[in-house]
Nucleic acid binder design. Structure first.
Length: 999
DNA sequence: CCCCAACCGTA
DNA sequence: GTACGGTTGGGGG
């Protein structure tokens, strides 16, 4: 770049927001995709590139780049945690446009620039200064005041909306100071939109006046005592640090590392057909014609392009991670008494951003759909490619489609695709006028068994080989938001067909974030709750029991009713639920803890883990032998044969026939034969109960593990693939089923043998990494307990420390029983302790347990305060929160039934602790794959399992040493940078060829 | 065939 | 005392 060149730097992210507000609110394509900002952007670019002399800017660029924000995790966030903390989420209409604008930039053959850790403004500043140094002129296309500090004799700004240049005199006119003093001015005035604090009470006028008088901020701060106005002097003196911090925040960096140097920004010739293809897709007819004329192309001969958008911040807008306030260090606001204030300006802005605030929209949608009837006769069966292509084009046009698969199995790892359904919404801008249409695409339905043709492929179905590429294009298209219910299933299924779903929402997960604790999140209950509609039960379509058939045997017209309805319901649920996220301030929980975990879990499930069937088989034999021997002995002692596995029969034998004392009864009046009861009897010297306990252990291990696990080995992968549920616990934990790999035995030596059957493939190791005492650490953090915090910092035995505090016993030479009691109390605290429960656990009198609790609270009064505050919050608000803002609702906390109420209170005490720990490991899991990829281990370290506080990986032998520190570091730093805990997290990791030895 | 209670494995 | 899922027995339809 040289003198005479002219570099244009376009603030792409800023443009979208400005265009959105400047243009009519709902500029849309014929089918509803909002493209107002994209349209404005393309027109502006075209003008700049072709007709620059017709605009006030008056020059034609030689170099040009469009700059975007990459993410909110910029260095400013490190300087000031609350930076941009009160940004509200961008309006729905804006979201698809972020990606489209990048696509438009590429269609114009222009470079898209973004750099991790920096805002667009910093990149612009760096380029501007470099170009200036090279003697070139610069025009920054933006009207953002944050960029005005860059204006100089050679650097101008250009407000494309007002078609107006901004030079040094314009800055002085508007702000009262020259550009080089803008930094100091902004440092004083602050910025409520970006949450830059500034000095309270100092606005632009006062700031300009002060700068006029003192020259610059440093001088002002040094001589602040000279200020005559008492109040102003006091505020400035009190906010010196804030002013300096604010200056660091508003000062743009000019040293951003750049991938492309200035010369790479030189304007390339336009690719007419490529640009026209894009413009046609966007339905910009006027611009299409102009471009066609200018490049001498026959626009009518060019097909609309398949628009493909880069994933990343793009599809959901820049800075979305800053859309929700990151919790400040200090955790649960109600505990610390801190909360992030929402400045009035931000509120006012939100109110005018669209016809509806999120809350209004949520309310309007809820009312519109609460009773809207379902018309099954309107559902379409798509049987030819032309119709399918039309529907897919409609989905692209509206940027939104509900999607559901129909398959042969509930197991996504085994299921075969039979067909799929779609639902499309027209006119979503009008909540009461939104129209939904739905269709089913049968692919491999067979003629019914009773049919004359008998089991052959039914006629008039689109061949799989034609449908899949189209489905792939749609599902992988990041400019189309796919909405599904329980998407992990469909995601995994489609992944097995080589399709990776991108840009998605899951109504189940949205409901889970909004309403955890208030009921199930399956489609049927949600449909009942929000749509007043009972969907066709699956068994009505596919039969049940013996008459049960796979979906490919269901007649296509019946299948259409069922499948299209599912897509219809899903889309309606999304319309109702999605705006509630923003209204409730839960968008970031959904977008940072929930949605990104879905593909991570899908990959874990797809990987599976190897279990050694030989080991299990041998163990099963041993267990059978042991159980058989015990059975013989039990029958002798009982004097008769009976079903030992029947608690009822066993109770009759023990407490009836043999007349043993000390039995308690269950709530149905049966004799209890629980392990606790049997252990007590055994301790009293009876032989039979001991043998029953042993027999139970052996048969439990055999039936639940050694015999069941081999049945879960996948016929093709030869591995076991569990299924994780993201939305079945109230607290945010995952659950695992079919098989449940979160309850593999570990506590007894016999049980641990099961773990030896979980093995690594040859040449590999399993790495198990688990958080040490994570829940107690979370407790120490949220309740701010100094002794606990210190103990964790010093790495001392936490239970021994507790015992020492409580009983005054030194840790050295502490009797095991004393420590055991303290440990039980610590766990009891986490569970919302009661004297009754602690007494049970320790087999002591309730009064004694009560004394322990009293003593504990005397030593740790902060814990009692914490517990009381959780109960109060649950009572007042109906919910409690984790450290990352996840909500857990307790609708029954005010029950008049004291035991129901007490139960809810204990749960409300436990949930923030258990749930925060769950959030922490979720963050670690989400970050794990990118972190491993960064050190070149992306495809060499495979995360397989999660067991609440433990992650299990499979790693090639040679990579173990390299992988372990990365895994440990990601887990230990999982709360950062969002939140720094008062207590360090510690992770232990080991590698071995089987899970038992690795753990 | 479905559902519930009891029991027990995990964190 | 919190949070889960799986197996078994047993009752009811």
């Amino acid at each position: 770049m040289k003198k005479g060149d002219h570099l244009f730097l376009i603030d792409g992210s800023g443009f979208i927001f400005r265009a959105f507000h400047a243009l009519p609110p709902l500029t849309r394509k014929t089918d509803g995709l909002p493209i107002g900002a994209v349209s404005g952007f393309c027109n502006m670019l075209w003008k700049l590139l072709r007709d620059a002399r017709n605009t006030d800017v008056g020059v034609t660029p030689t170099h040009l780049a469009v700059i975007f924000d990459y993410s909110a995790k910029t260095f400013r966030k490190d300087l000031y945690d609350a930076y941009k903390a009160n940004r509200s989420a961008p309006p729905e209409e804006l979201i698809p446009q972020f990606g489209l604008i990048r696509e438009a930039t590429r269609a114009f053959n222009l470079p898209c620039i973004e750099t991790e850790g920096f805002e667009a403004d910093d990149i612009i500043a760096t380029y501007a200064r470099q170009a200036e140094a090279a003697g070139a002129d610069v025009t920054i296309v933006s009207s953002d005041k944050d960029l005005m500090q860059l204006v100089s004799p050679n650097v101008h700004m250009y407000d494309s909306m007002k078609d107006k240049q901004i030079g040094i005199p314009d800055v002085i006119e508007k702000w009262g100071v020259p550009p080089e003093k803008m930094i100091d001015l902004q440092a004083m005035t602050g910025d409520s939109v970006d949450n830059v604090p500034g000095i309270p009470g100092i606005g632009p006028k006062t700031a300009a006046q002060l700068l006029e008088e003192y020259g610059d901020l440093d001088t002002l701060l040094e001589r602040a005592t000279e200020i005559k106005q008492v109040k102003r002097r006091e505020t400035i003196l009190a906010n010196i640090d804030m002013a300096k911090l604010s200056r660091d925040l508003v000062r743009l960096r000019t040293d951003v590392p750049l991938d492309l140097d200035l010369d790479a920004l030189v304007l390339e010739p336009q690719n007419g057909p490529k640009l026209i293809g894009f413009l046609k897709t966007m339905e910009f007819t006027t611009l299409t014609r102009r471009v066609g004329e200018a490049c001498d192309c026959d626009a009518s001969a060019i097909e609309p392009a398949v628009v493909h958008i880069e994933w990343g911040e793009a599809a959901h807008g820049p800075d979305l991670s800053a859309a929700e306030p990151e919790p400040v260090a200090g955790g649960i606001p109600e505990v610390s008494g801190e909360s992030v204030p929402v400045p009035p300006r931000a509120k006012a802005k939100a109110a005018v951003e669209g016809a509806f605030s999120p809350a209004d929209l949520a309310k309007a949608r809820a009312e519109a759909f609460a009773t809207l009837p379902f018309d099954h006769t309107a559902y379409v069966t798509i049987r030819d490619l032309a119709t399918l292509d039309r529907w897919i084009a409609d989905a692209r046009a509206t940027g939104l489609v509900a999607f559901d698969t129909e398959t042969t199995s509930l197991d996504a790892m085994q299921a075969e695709l039979v067909g799929f359904s779609m639902a499309i919404a027209d006119n979503t801008a009008d909540p009461t006028g939104t129209k939904i249409r739905a269709a089913y695409v049968p692919l491999v339905h067979k003629n019914g068994v009773g049919d004359l043709l008998g089991g052959g492929l039914a006629e008039n179905q689109i061949p799989m080989r034609d449908a899949l590429p189209r489905l792939k294009a749609l599902l992988e298209d990041e400019s189309v938001l796919k909405v599904a219910q329980n998407l992990k299933y469909d995601y995994l299924l489609m992944k097995r067909y080589g399709i990776e779903t991108r840009s998605f929402d899951d109504t189940m997960l949205i409901s889970y974030v909004l309403d955890a604790g208030t009921g199930a999140h399956g489609m049927d209950p949600l449909s009942e709750k929000f749509l007043g509609h009972t969907p066709i039960p699956y068994k009505d379509v596919a039969g049940s029991g013996k008459a049960n058939v796979t979906f490919d045997l269901v007649a296509i017209d019946r299948a259409t009713h069922y499948a299209a309805e599912d897509a219809d319901v899903t889309l309606r649920l999304w319309l109702v639920l999605k705006p509630r996220l923003a209204a409730a301030g839960l968008t970031s929980v959904y977008e940072r803890l929930e949605r990104p975990l879905l593909p991570v879990l899908a990959r874990m499930e797809a990987r599976g883990i190897t279990v050694d069937r030989q080991i299990l088989s041998r163990l099963s034999g041993e267990l059978a032998q042991g159980a058989a021997r015990l059975e013989d002995e039990i029958y002798v002692l009982a004097g008769e044969r009976f079903n030992i596995g029947s608690p009822k029969q066993l109770g009759d034998i023990l407490f009836g026939k043999m007349g043993l004392a000390g039995g308690s009864k269950t709530k149905t009046g049966q004799w209890s034969t629980s392990a606790q009861v049997l252990e007590d009897l055994a301790a009293a010297g009876f032989e039979l109960p001991r043998k029953i306990v042993d027999w139970r252990q052996l048969t439990k291990l055999k039936s639940t593990y050694t015999d069941a696990l081999p049945g879960y080995v996948h016929p093709e992968t030869k591995r076991v693939h569990t299924s994780y549920s993201l939305a079945s616990t109230t607290t945010g934990r995952l659950s695992s089923s079919e098989p449940n790999l979160q309850n593999i035995p570990v506590r007894t030596a016999e049980g641990r043998k099961i773990r030896t059957a979980f093995i690594s493939t040859p040449g590999h190791k399993l790495i198990s990494a688990d958080y040490s005492q994570i829940e107690l650490r979370v407790l120490a953090h949220v309740a701010e307990i100094p002794q606990l915090t210190k103990a964790f910092e010093d790495g001392v035995d936490i239970h021994a420390m507790t015992a020492s505090e409580m009983f005054g016993v030194p840790v050295e030479g502490m009797p095991g029983e004393v420590r055991r009691r303290a440990k039980a109390i610590n766990f009891g605290i986490i569970y919302g302790i009661s004297a009754f429960g602690l007494a049970n656990q320790l087999s002591i009198e309730r009064s004694e347990a009560g004394d322990y609790i009293k003593k504990y609270f005397e030593r740790f009064p902060g814990i009692r305060d914490y517990m009381e505050s959780r109960k109060a919050m649950a009572r007042d608000k109906g919910y409690v929160e984790t450290i990352f803002g996840r909500r857990i609702n307790y609708p029954e906390i005010r029950s008049s039934n004291p035991s129901v109420r007490a139960f809810n209170e204990r749960a409300a005490i436990n949930a923030p602790i258990q749930g925060s720990a769950a959030d922490v490991i979720r963050r670690a899991m989400i970050r794990m794959e990118p972190a491993l990829a960064e050190v070149g281990l992306g495809d060499r370290v495979r995360m397989l399992l999660q067991v609440h506080d433990e992650l299990i990986f499979e790693v090639e032998d040679d990579d173990v040493e390299k992988a372990m520190p990365v895994i440990v570091s990601v887990m230990e730093n999982a709360t950062m940078p969002a939140l720094e805990m008062r207590v360090p997290l510690r992770v232990d990791a080991r590698a071995a060829t089987n899970w038992d030895e690795a753990h």
